[in-house]
Design a binder for these strands. Structure first.
Lengths: 215, 215
DNA sequence: TAATATTATTAGCCGTGGCTAAACTTTATA
DNA sequence: TATAAAGTTTAGCCACGGCTAATAATATTA
């Protein structure tokens, strides 16, 4: 009744937000056709994991959400585990965890969590849901929404799309890093920030993928 | 074209020996019906991984063998890795590795092998095939075949069937352990061995599952 | 050797999770 | 508001990997 495909759908829905997820949106995210997506949504709906209003969109039920968070937990624990033991680069962590997350038993999940001292953030700074789906209160805000002249600390970077990760690394942007926001370009919303006494420009797209706290 | 099921068939065939593997035998090992097994054998045969003579039995081709050994390598590396990092008990290692082995990328396999310094034996003493299927010359012999009055060292214990593992542990039989073979019962082939100055009886079944070297 | 038991294969079904093509809603635009 | 475009669903196909029931080949044993 659970399967890799189903877990992938649930996780994708969780990533796409809380309600009214479009079939096309979900299909694109999973790289399958909309027809396949509709079919799966109906299946998950029958099983009480998803709410679905035809032509209007879908969303996770409580049970579906819990299962989605279980997958996310396994994913992020695996990233943390592989990072700590093997020292894999941040760019490769995601894709490896993506394959392994479906094969992790509850026992092994528990062992890994214990080994890591029940971490609440993964190597990208993302919160790791607890064993019952509890997620700590996440007060981080998007870099793009920070006021000018504030000093901020990088808290979360994406785990997918390794190009961005490589760009970030190349420009010395890593978790825990402090930056000072110098100015914002009103035309394209790009930022100029000071980091280690040097100035770098951060595009609007980029600044919408990075979460920070204001110091 | 590869899949979990196919990998399971290949690995099972490897375990069952080199040639003329019966459909029923394979089916029982995999806990599927003989009909399913025939079907899969035909598929694998079409793909050049298996040789098959109808009603006569099946065996792995060179390519099939290589793929089987790749699965075995992943399995044994995972057991070694989980044992070293998480300190899992020998009894639980097998079942966890069984699930993960199919989700291990070549990259991650390499990382783990490197991390472990390219081990040639897993925690049960089984040889770990190399990245191209090379397996070191295994000179261990079955405990059941040792002459009386020989001193031997335990080299390999089963990784499945945790009852046996628990019995072994309970009786102080672990890898590297020395024993002296006192006597053999000619009726049931059970052995009496001396281990840490105490005598234990080892049934014939058991002694056919443990590999040793003679000191 | 003939009857029987064992083992293997074939035929045909099922659920899963993809796909394409066609039909149907909803939304946007002229 | 009528039409076009975009998004969604349905219908029907396919490969995979199970299953049962029926048939066929091989082995055993009387």
């Amino acid at each position: 009744m659970t399967s890799i495909a189903r877990e992938d759908y649930l996780k994708a829905m969780w990533k796409l937000g809380s309600s009214n997820i479009g079939t096309l949106e979900l299909a694109n995210h999973l790289k399958v056709t909309p027809a396949s997506t509709t079919k799966m949504i109906l299946k998950l709906s029958e099983n009480g994991l998803v709410r679905h209003k035809p032509y209007k969109g879908a969303s996770l039920t409580e049970i579906g959400l819990k299962q989605a968070l279980s997958v996310v937990r396994r994913h992020r624990l695996l990233e943390t585990f592989l990072s700590k033991t093997l020292g894999l680069s941040n760019e490769s962590l995601h894709v490896e965890a993506e394959r392994l997350e479906h094969a992790l038993s509850k026992d092994l999940e528990n062992s890994i969590a214990k080994y890591l001292n029940n971490p609440v953030r993964d190597p990208h700074g993302h919160p790791i849901p607890g064993p019952n789906g509890e997620i700590f209160n996440n007060e981080d805000i998007l870099l793009s929404e920070c006021p000018i002249s504030s000093t901020i600390i990088i808290r979360q970077v994406p785990d997918e799309d390794s190009e961005i990760l490589i760009w970030l690394k190349h420009n010395g942007v890593s978790l825990g890093q402090k930056m000072y926001i110098k100015s914002k370009n009103n035309f394209d919303d790009s930022l100029v920030v000071e980091i280690n006494n040097s100035l770098i420009e951060i595009s609007s797209n980029m600044s919408k993928l990075v979460y920070v706290t204001i110091e």
